[in-house]
Structures are given as C-alpha cells and as structure tokens.
Amino acid sequence: MKSKQTSAESRLERGRRALKAIDGEAGEKVIEALKDIAPDFATYLLEFPFGDIYSRPELSLRDREIATIAALAAMGNATPQLKVHIEAGLNVGLTKTEIAEVLMQMSVYAGFPAALNGLSAAKEVFALRDSQGLSGPN
C-alpha cells in the first residue's frame, strides 16, 4: 500500500517536526554539526528520512525506532547513530528492557559482537540519561 503525504507542510518542515519529536536535542546536534561542512546534507537528512519516511502513517514512531535500532546494531559500524536512535527509542516510548531485547535479538542474525556492541552503546545512553534525571521506564 502506497502512502502519500497530504499536508501542505513542506518535506523540510515535516522533517524538522519529526526530528524534534523523535530525536529531540540529539537530532538537532547532528543537523548543527553538518552546517559548516555539508549544509545541503543536513537538508537531505531532514527531508528524506524524517520528512518522507518517518512521517508515513503505516508504522508508529515506536515501531520505526525498533527497526532502526536493530538495523544500526546489525551494521556494527554505526555506534554514534545507534546511540542517537537508542535515545530516540526512549523518547518515543520504548523501555530500556525492550531496547535490550531488540539488541539481544541481533545476536541471532548479526552475531554476538554486534549484539554486545549494541548493548554497550545502550548502557552508555542509559547511564547518561540516568545522570541527567531522564531515566524513564525500565
């Protein structure tokens, strides 16, 4: 089933709104970090993944973050992005336990090193959030 965005809102505007809802401050830091080296790439990031894909109604943001966390962990070479999306998962309602389960599931399909690295990244994100008083549900 094909989904079409029907809002008069531009892809860029929709992307900015989605990024804020999903990634909050962490997402803004990624966009800001690109401004001096690749400002067009920052725009592409806002328009395509967030304005087009994340904004589709067929999956919830929670479900999209489960898929994203799994994919990034399985890649095994995207730890900074994985940490951003673990944070995003917590922002959209995933619990720490659910995130750990997703990462453990990756041991079956991506191997123990990918799962261990993912769990290590999650542990760092959880500890940082705990230290900021943002621990959320387990």
Rank of each mutant, 00 (worst) to 15 (best):
A70Y: 02
K2D: 15
E13N: 11
H85G: 01
E25C: 02
T43R: 04
T97N: 06
G136E: 02
G136Y: 01
R11G: 04
G133T: 09
E101C: 01
G93T: 06
L103V: 05
L116E: 07
F112C: 13
L61C: 05
Y44N: 13
T6M: 10
L45W: 04
E101P: 00
L90M: 11
A21H: 09
K20G: 08
M106P: 06
E13A: 15
I86A: 03
D36R: 13
S107R: 13
A67M: 15
I37A: 10
A33I: 11
R11P: 09
E32V: 13
A38D: 04
G118T: 00
P39Y: 06
K4D: 13
M104I: 07
I99L: 04
K29E: 11
Y54E: 02
E98P: 00
K29C: 01
E28Y: 04
G89E: 01
A18T: 15
A70P: 02
V125L: 01
L34E: 10
S7L: 09
I31A: 14
A70S: 09
I69T: 02
A122H: 10
A110V: 10
L12C: 00
G111A: 03
S131Y: 12
L90R: 14
I37V: 12
T6L: 15
I66V: 15
T6A: 05
A42I: 11
A33G: 13
S55V: 06
Y109L: 14
A18F: 03
A18Y: 05
V84G: 11
G89M: 01
E25H: 05
Q105R: 10
A8L: 13
A8M: 13
L46N: 11
R56F: 07
K29Q: 07
A74D: 03
D52N: 12
M75E: 10
L116P: 02
T95S: 08
K83P: 11
A100T: 12
E87Q: 06
Q105C: 02
P113Q: 11
D130T: 14
F50L: 12
G89F: 01
E13H: 08
A121Q: 08
P57R: 11
V92R: 03
N138T: 14
V125P: 03
M106G: 00
G111T: 10
E32T: 14
N77C: 11
P49G: 05
L90A: 08
K123A: 12
F48V: 12
P113A: 07
T79M: 12
R64V: 02
P39K: 05
S107K: 09
